[in-house]
Structures are given as structure tokens and as C-alpha cells.
Design a protein around this nucleic acid. Structure first.
Lengths: 186, 186
DNA sequence: GTCTATACGAAGATAGAC
DNA sequence: GTCTATCTTCGTATAGAC
């Protein structure tokens, strides 16, 4: 059915954004990857590529929020571990070739709308992390700053690990995050 | 003279990579930005676009190393402040639209050679930071981990700040780096 | 070193048939 | 909903004149 085709296209676009970037997230690649009919792209996405990418960003944003959905009421240490592990799993499962869709869009788009959507993804993650860290033992101020730093660190670590194709590079870059958290608590 | 044209093209490509990404770093854009002759691109870069981007990445890598060239013998705190301030200046001078060329290439290329060049840029920065932090009061192990984390954090902070077009987002993401450094020293 | 002309392919997008 | 055909634009790249 139609919903299914559209959903598969969005999922494929999300994957392509994260692994090959905005340029390679073309209709041709999406169709090939998802085995969906070429003739129905503009039926499902009248707004063209931008509408597809917008939907893909939204999906990517939701996925991380879902990964954090079980973290309510857990300690800040556990929240941090979940974030670090979630990205680690993504990297490892792709031989360190896949990263963050929002990052890929941010550094490659010239569209205000797409940039805004990427911004919204980051903001939603940071907001959620701030709440979780605050609930997990940090003061409001410290929670906000630690959420901002840990998100930036993980995003940077993912990019650097991809360039080096090295899980060790990722692990090294995030290694001191628990140390910082301990310092904030102590 | 020839060297001048080539150099201007490389400089322009570096700027375009950092601000508009790999796709937009096209010959047309480079020529327009740098006001260089269209007919001489393949004279200066027989290897085509990849050769141009390779040179641009190398240039970007050198620029950061140059920014760190006065940091020998300074404290780890001063080294950190220099790194954070260098990226901050770049962001601020562009209304938060410019970022890191190596990040732009990493998330957008499918070329092993370009990915390797981006990897080399990150490695050269990290190596230099590790040496500076070690010289500035950290043990070898801590220096390596703090170099990896601070580089990842700053790179991530730059991307997120660009998406949000917000210097405050950058400042917030890096705010706790001195706290971590203090914890490592104490 | 720089020019023009040109070839080639890919991508986004639209129109109209089925 | 899906197809095919087509259009336009753009980017990379080459050839050969100046």
C-alpha cells in the first residue's frame, strides 16, 4: 500500500543521509536501496527532495528519542552510557561507515528549511538529555551544560571515527565523559 | 603567475568546503569565488576535483596547526583556550555559517582517498594536541584522551552551532571542558 | 596558461498515459 | 499509484586552438 512505500522511502533516505550524505541521498539511490517504484516519488513527496529529506530528518530525530525512552528515572551515569552505547552500536553495525543524518544535512545544505530541521533534531535531543541528566542527579545548570557537551562530543566522535574507520577512535574520544560527570556530581 | 592562481583556487575550495560542503565545492563555485580562469583548472589540477579537494584539506589541516604553533610550553588550560577560541573566531566571523572542511568531506565523500585525507587531518590535530596537553601538565594517557575528547567536542559543537546558527550553542557545548581539565589535573 | 567548444552523465522535476 | 518520456540544469572532464 501507499503508506508502506512512503515509509520505506523515508527509512531509506534516513539511512542514506547517515551513511553517504545529502548529495548521495538522491531519488535514484533511494529507489534502488528500498526497491520502491520510481514513478511514485512525486506522488508521495510533492515537495520533491526537500520534503523527503525533511521526513528523513524527523525520523532520525525520533529514533534517538526512542532509544532514550527507557531512561526516565535512571541515573545520569546510565543515561550517558545509553547515549554512548546507542551511537556505538550504530557505528559498529556499519563497519564505522554510518553517522548522523542531521550532521550530514547541516554541513551540506543551503536550504534554510533543511537547516532548521537539523537544528530542531539537535535541540530535541539536547532538551531530552538535559531533562534526563537533571532527573539523574545533576543540577539544572550542570545538566544543560553536560547535555550540550556530551551531545557535541558524541557527534564529533562519530565523525572522527568514520574518517578513521576506527571504533577505537570513538571509544577514546568519549572515554572521559564519565570522568567529567563524576566531577560534576562530586 | 601560475602558483598564485592555484593557491587561490585551493584557498577558495577550503572556504567552500567549510561553508557549503563537498557538493557545492564545484569548479564553477571555486572559479566564481576566487575570480580565477576557468580554462586553467585542469592545468593546475590534472587529477580533477579530487586533487583540488585533497589540496584544500591539506591546507585546512595546516591552518589549525599554525593556530597552535605558539602554544608550545604553555599550560594545558591555555592550549584548550586557544583551540576553543580559534574555532569560535571562525564561527563568529561567518555569522555561524562556516565549519570544518574535514567534517564536510567525511560525511559526504565516497572516495577512500578523500576519506583518508580527512582522517589524516584529524589525526594530525589530535597528535599535536596530545603533545601540547602532555607538555602542559597532563600525563601521557590523560593527554591523549583529553585531546581526543576536546577535538571531538569542538567539532561537534561547531556543527550544532551552525545548525542553530547560534554562538551560544557553541559556548554552551564547550563550557565544561575546563572543568574536565581541572578534574584531570587535580 | 588560458581559452572555447563539447561530450557525457546525473539529478531534480514535470506531463501525460495507464 | 505507478509508468515512461522528456526537459532542464549542472558538474566533471577532454580536446584542441591561441
Amino acid at each position: 500500500m501507499a503508506k508502506d512505500v512512503r515509509e520505506r522511502m523515508v527509512a531509506g533516505a534516513t539511512t542514506l543521509l547517515a551513511s553517504k550524505g545529502l548529495q548521495a541521498t538522491s531519488f535514484s539511490e533511494v529507489i534502488e536501496l528500498t526497491d520502491t517504484p520510481r514513478g511514485s516519488i512525486y506522488h508521495h513527496f510533492p515537495g520533491g527532495k526537500d520534503e523527503l529529506v525533511l521526513a528523513a530528518l524527523d525520523r532520525a530525530g525520533q529514533q534517538m528519542l526512542t532509544a532514550l525512552s527507557d531512561s526516565d528515572g535512571t541515573s545520569a551515569e546510565d543515561v550517558l552510557a545509553t547515549v554512548v552505547a546507542t551511537w556505538r552500536t550504530l557505528l559498529e553495525g556499519s563497519q564505522v561507515t554510518t553517522g548522523c543524518a542531521a550532521v550530514a544535512v547541516t554541513v551540506a545544505t543551503e536550504s534554510e528549511e533543511l537547516l532548521g530541521a537539523a537544528s530542531h533534531v539537535f535541540a530535541s535531543w539536547q532538551e531530552r538529555l538535559t531533562a534526563l541528566f537533571a532527573g539523574g542527579g545533576l543540577t539544572a545548570d550542570k545538566a544543560a551544560e553536560f547535555a550540550a557537551l556530551s551531545l557535541a562530543t558524541v557527534e564529533g566522535a562519530v565523525v572522527i571515527a568514520r574518517a578513521k574507520r576506527s571504533m577505537a577512535a570513538y571509544d577514546q574520544a568519549v572515554a572521559l565523559l564519565p570522568t567529567l560527570l563524576a566531577a560534576l556530581k562530586g
